[in-house]
């Protein structure tokens, strides 16, 4: 075996280990988000929180669309489409920021309760806050990926950082797909 082959093998092997590690992290984090869900049901049952439905739908759509662009970015980098990759990434980041503005800026400002107002306030701010914190870290990762992408650090073969932050982004998105109905829709029907 030549040493080049060997390097590829060991890169592949590392990739497998890294992927496993990332999924294990998701499993762990999921328990934390699950704990918050339990708190919501335990304290509030299926009580409706009377939140602004339009805003809720809006931020949810924004996040879903951002996930779509994130996926585009990942596909494009593996196809070697540098420009498309950067564009999609920038769109993802911008959508992520708008999500944060929507939740933390608008929703928190307009909600009819504060964090100190009973169990409803506590649960709402904790769930959205914890999720927003994850979105924020996601944006930071994506920004680093963007910086390195602009410096042409990724090749179609080697771009695990893109893949990892994409998966993280999708994971945080999936969490919101569960949180959204639990926070906004439950109890309305």
């Amino acid at each position: 075996m030549s040493s080049i082959n060997n390097a590829i093998v060991s890169y592949q092997q590392k990739l497998a280990i890294n992927r496993l590690g990332l999924w294990l992290f998701f499993a762990s984090d999921a328990f934390m988000f699950g704990g918050l869900l339990v708190a919501r049901f335990y304290l509030l049952g299926n009580k409706n929180l009377n939140l602004d439905q339009t805003l809720g739908l809006l931020v949810t759509s924004i996040l879903l669309i951002s996930s779509f662009f994130m996926n585009r970015a990942e596909v494009m980098v593996s196809e070697g489409n540098h420009k498309g990759f950067i564009t999609s990434l920038v769109i993802t980041i911008l959508l992520g920021i708008s999500f944060l503005v929507g939740v933390v800026g608008l929703e928190w400002g307009s909600a009819h309760f504060g964090p100190g107002d009973g169990a409803e306030g506590a649960v709402f701010y904790m769930m959205t806050g914890m999720h927003a914190f994850h979105v924020l870290t996601g944006i930071i990762f994506l920004s680093l990926v963007l910086r390195n992408g602009l410096n042409k650090k990724y090749t179609p073969e080697k771009h695990y950082a893109v893949e990892a932050s994409a998966n993280y982004w999708h994971f945080v998105d999936v969490v919101w797909i569960i949180y959204y109905p639990v926070l906004y829709l439950m109890g309305t029907i």
């Binding site: 339990v38 708190a39 335990y42 304290l43 964090p115 100190g116 009973g118 169990a119 409803e120 306030g121 506590a122 649960v123 701010y125 904790m126």
Partner: peptide, 15 residues
């Protein structure tokens, strides 16, 4: 002051 566990504010210590 987020009341998860104080009953007088809607919380529940059993949680």
């Amino acid at each position: 002051g987020m009341s998860f566990f104080t009953p007088s504010d809607g919380g529940n210590p059993i949680l």
